[in-house]
Amino acid sequence: MRFEPRAPREGINVSATHPLREAALLVAGVSAIFAALILVVGWSVEWAVRWIPPELEARTFGDWAHHLSSPEHEAERLAVEALARRLAMHWPGAPYEFQVTVSDEPEVNAMALPGGTILVTKGLLRESQSENELAFVVGHELGHFRNRDQLRRLGRGILYELTASALFGFNATAPEVTGFLGQMADRGFDREQERAADRFGLELVQAEYGHVAGAGRFFERLVSRTSGLGDLAAYVSTHPASSDRLEDLRDYAAERGWRREGVLQPWTRSD
């Protein structure tokens, strides 16, 4: 028995695949899985929302959001609520008893909460220069209620959270990827919803005032100030691509021959 030094060929225990190629394949594969997941979640939420009657939704969530409002904004809260109910008169058979909650935040934002509550921020009330302008934002939120977007958003949020934690909860790296993809996906879903809500809001404004002046003003200022972002950043991030939507609104109004000029109702601004 003799020792004969020999070396094995180099590279047998290391795959020849280039790391960058591997990275590309992996990212593509994971994205595909995630895209499929987003579609499945989206569809199942669409399906589920159809089976939840608005009455049940209103009963379930009912007064819940009422408690969010700060008492010192009660006068404004009532004013916005009156505005919302006036606008809702042009939506016959609206299944909700609309309520308004004013939150203390300085950011400009509004949100439709399950159960028929519209949340507006202090920042929005401060920024609104006419009642018409505010009416459009409130009408936009009413549009979300008509399309049941508030339930969709809630449902998607819960489902994403559940599936992501079931699938990737243990994984150290994935959240960075999945979080980003999830945000992008939400945005894709949102775009259509926002557009539909915009048009409905515009219809309500036209029905209430006989013209749509002021409706676009809000967006115009948003667009002109998006470069600076600042306190408008919050609104832009949940209501993406303002310039596209402004254009859509103009086209929509023009098609129907709605007047873009008219007398604006004053909105008593608060500080």
Partner: peptide
């Protein structure tokens, strides 16, 4: 490489 391994953990 940890990032790649993390993605691999999904697939």
């Amino acid at each position: 490489k940890r990032f790649l391994a993390g993605l691999r953990g999904i697939l």
